[in-house]
Write a protein that binds this DNA or RNA. Structure first.
Length: 831
DNA sequence: CGCCGATCGATTTTT
DNA sequence: TCGATCGGCG
């Protein structure tokens, strides 16, 4: 039924045959691309057969493993490029993978048609079998705008108050259901009831029916339909089973239930066929729970795939020992994790510790960070491109932007409103969609009256009714009505004009070059003119974007190809030419790395965000902590954390207290900085403000971390300008318990390194807790563990247990209550 | 149809 | 506080 491109060719056998010959031809020497891999990476690449889960910590060479694995499979002749299914979440990741595989195997990736995002692969499958789920192969893909407008119509059709039951809310709900793989009949009663007095289920069903009538899909359907298809048509599924000899999944921790179901259908073969599925991910970097990602997918991999090989990549090639130590220690506070500890061999005594800075308010924070950036730039000759500011919430960005504008510092905001989401671009695209797909009602609705042509609600309603009654597309209905008496002369004439325009453009599709046609459409429709006449400040930018849109079409062969691309990609590449500091959210920083990373806003309520705490409870907090972990591990060499004591939230100034995450950083790797603001540090204005900052002082005293700081300070200098609040002293202060008795702290509470194991050991009253950076232990200790199999140990979280296995400084312990866990030696003590 | 004032709400975001 | 969005009015 489906004509796969090389259905006629015999696939290479998984073993022997071509593979054997390839191996033989190469002799016993391993190929170059394996040369630079460490043993774990190499195992991940070479274990081609059977299910494999690669737990790849931040900066451990995950992408490298994935791409090398593909290259390896190809090189051994185990499969044709078209027999490898490689799925990513973002287009960017897909692009990068394609490029890197290309570099490894030398351009032959053209033939990797099944490397892409879940959604793009979903579309591809769906286009081949559209009829089987009730669609036509040329179905359109709705964007969020279209979706909302459609839902709004449905809500109104149900005579519901669309104010009380906003379309957006329902769109989000449906999105949630689709993320879970739920069809209208599957949604739980409670959920169905939650919207519009129990009409949720009907609305969802009505929406799906409407999409079918429109021959359209939303993003969720790109996963839902293939799942339904595979379930209802085992023969089709079997074809894909035969086709995909190897399956690879990137960022597995981010998969939602629907993606998981989709994947499981494809990956779980009949008994006799090997399940060559390799999932790569990091449970510690799962930060998309709120949009349906199920960490559980990664946690139960070996249950879904019997006999799975689990490989941990823990050797980090990105960050300094201090950064890794801080990150590892922080993330160890999470309970829901498989447990991994990053380490590096590259510990340089010159490496700066992770800095923690305090500021008065967000304005000062922005100013100080701006200065720090200039310092690095001027004194150390750093590129702005190597620095990034990672914020929790986008409102934090404005302060930095304002400041950098006045300073004249180049910056780049990553992740803002995207190109294809801009109004003018969407309008233009709607025109193109109408030309290519005359049945695209939503596109037609969007632009019938843009620019204003005097076709108001009334006229549109009439067209709608007419189209509905005869079950024809809007544009066809408009065409017919333009010839009847139903409309008043004026709108009738306009409508006739519009319809004939579209007809004409459609005819030109075959003959005129698509970029020229696009220009012509924008010109003749009056759309360009509309913006030329617009006096607002944005108008020139919008015209520029329209030009850019046409320009970006160049590289596609036709208008329809371009539209398909746009529907799935929704993004254009950033120009990385100028040297600029990046400002982005922690979420969008995942996967990136920078020499220097600034992490502002570490305050309770903002980070961890209050809403995560309220809505997500413990797991919400853990996700926030993973976010902190992601933030820290973006830094290669320098990480500078900030918190302030006053922040404006919803327009009101609120005093804030330092984030609990600060208390979860190991002191051995952290340096608490003096208030190094433009007010000249301590003294004068700066100090007096601290003095007045009762909120800060109180806050500071309430969290253990700052009590620690204070304690350290008390034994240090006691200049006591402001009553020894711990911040009035001179220079930078290092808080450095537990590391080689750095006596500056001057109190008798130091412990020798690696003996003062953290968290539990000396949390005695009054004295500061001892926290030892586990990374130090990890990277320095090579001697045998102080524990042996059978030893009884105590762990602060898991309680008492018996050591089952010792592996370096990692122990596998059978806890009496908590079951078997892998823990770091540093976290248990002998009983 | 278009403009203006009231009202609401305010993490994170991909496809 | 600020901004987007909606309903009412001219």
């Amino acid at each position: 039924m489906t004509d796969f491109d090389e259905s006629g060719r015999a696939a290479p056998a998984a073993t022997g045959g071509i593979a054997a010959r390839a191996m033989a031809a190469r002799g016993t020497r391993s190929p170059d691309y394996l040369a630079g891999l460490n043993p774990e990476q190499r195992a991940a690449v070479e274990t081609t057969e059977g299910p494999v889960l690669v737990l790849a910590g931040a900066g451990t060479g995950k992408t490298r493993v994935l791409t090398t694995r593909i290259a390896h499979i190809l090189n051994l002749g185990l499969a044709f490029p078209s027999q490898i299914l490689a799925v990513t979440f973002t287009n960017k990741a897909a692009r990068e993978m394609k490029n890197r595989v290309g570099l490894l195997v030398g351009g032959a990736v053209e033939g990797m048609p099944w490397l892409g995002t879940f959604h793009s692969i979903g579309v591809k499958i769906l286009r081949r079998h559209a009829e089987l789920v009730g669609l036509k192969s040329n179905f359109t893909i709705l964007d969020t705008d279209d979706q909302i407008r459609l839902i709004k119509q449905l809500i109104q059709a149900e005579n519901l108050d669309d104010k009380r039951w906003p379309a957006r809310t329902f769109a989000n709900m449906m999105d949630g259901w689709k993320n879970k793989g739920l069809t209208p009949k599957d949604i739980p009663e409670g959920d169905a009831r939650a919207f519009a007095n129990g009409k949720g289920r009907e609305l969802y069903a009505a929406y799906q029916a409407r999409l079918m009538a429109l021959n359209a899909c939303d993003f969720g359907d790109l996963l839902m339909h293939p799942i339904a298809l595979f379930r209802a048509h085992p023969d089709v599924l079997a074809e894909y089973h035969r086709r995909f000899k190897y399956i690879l999944v990137d960022e597995y921790q981010d998969t939602n239930v629907a993606q998981y179901l989709w994947l499981r259908l494809l990956a779980q073969r009949p008994k006799d066929v090997p399940q060559n599925v390799c999932c790569v991910g990091d449970d510690d970097q799962s930060i998309y729970g709120w949009r349906g990602a199920e960490v559980d997918n990664i946690l139960r991999f070996d249950k879904d795939f019997q006999g799975a090989t689990v490989i941990r990549l823990e050797r980090n090639y990105r960050s300094t020992a201090h950064i890794l130590g801080a990150a590892s220690h922080l993330i160890a506070h999470n309970e829901d994790r498989l447990g991994k500890t990053l380490f590096t061999d590259a510990a340089d005594p010159e490496d700066p510790k992770v800095e923690v800075n305090a500021g008065w308010d967000s304005e000062e924070e922005a100013r100080a960070i701006g200065e720090a950036i200039e310092d690095l730039q001027r004194r150390e000759n750093h590129n702005l491109n190597d620095m990034a500011i990672l914020v929790r919430a986008s409102f934090q960005m404005r302060e930095f932007e304002d400041r950098f504008v006045t300073m004249g510092l180049n910056y780049r905001v990553i992740g803002g409103p995207r190109f294809y989401e801009r109004m003018e671009v969407r309008d233009a695209l709607a025109y193109f969609r109408c030309v290519c797909q005359p049945a695209d009602d939503l596109a037609f609705e969007r632009i019938v009256n843009t620019p204003k042509r005097g076709l108001g609600d009334a006229t549109i309603r009439l067209i709608h009714d007419y189209a509905r009654a005869r079950a024809i597309p809007l544009i066809a209905a408009a065409g017919e009505m333009a010839e009847t008496e139903e409309l008043k002369p004026k709108p009738r004439a306009t409508l006739r004009r519009v319809v004939s325009d579209f007809r004409r453009w459609s005819e030109l599709l075959a003959t005129v070059k698509h970029t020229e046609l696009a220009e012509q459409i924008l010109e003749e429709s009056g759309y360009t003119e509309m913006w030329q006449n617009d006096r607002s400040a944005e108008a020139p930018g919008r015209l520029e974007n329209l030009k850019e849109l046409v320009r970006s079409m160049e590289q596609y062969e036709s208008l329809p190809t371009f539209l398909e691309h746009v529907a799935l990609v929704m993004d254009t590449e950033q120009n990385a030419e100028m040297d600029a500091v990046s400002i982005m959210t922690l979420h969008s920083a995942k996967g990136l790395e920078f020499e220097t990373v600034f992490l502002p806003g570490w305050e309770e309520g903002l980070f961890p965000h209050q809403r995560s705490l309220d809505e997500g409870g413990r797991s919400g907090l853990e996700e926030e902590r993973r976010l902190a972990y992601v933030g820290l591990t973006r830094g290669k060499r320098r990480v500078k954390i900030w918190f302030v004591s006053n922040r404006r939230i919803h327009g009101l100034w609120q005093s804030t207290i330092p984030s609990r995450f600060l208390d979860e950083l190991p002191e051995a790797h952290v340096e608490v900085m003096e208030a190094n603001t433009s007010y000249g540090g301590y003294g004068g204005y700066g100090a007096s403000r601290w003095d007045g900052a009762s909120a800060f002082k109180e806050a500071a005293y309430t969290t253990p971390g700052w009590r620690r700081a204070q304690a350290a300070n008390a034994g240090f200098t006691n200049t006591g300008k402001s009553g020894g609040d711990g911040w009035s002293g001179g220079r930078t202060r290092e808080i450095n318990y537990g590391e080689g008795g750095n006596a500056r702290a001057g109190r008798g509470h130091n412990q020798p390194p690696r003996q003062g194991f953290g968290l539990h050991s000396s949390a005695s009253k009054g004295g500061p807790r001892e926290i030892e950076g586990e990374l130090v232990a990890k990277s320095v200790v090579t001697e045998a563990s102080r524990f042996a199999e059978g030893d009884r140990v105590f762990h602060l979280k898991f309680g008492n247990g018996t050591v089952a296995n010792v592996e370096g400084n990692k122990l596998t312990v059978d806890f009496d209550k908590a079951g078997q866990k892998r823990v770091l030696e540093g976290f248990v003590e002998a009983v």
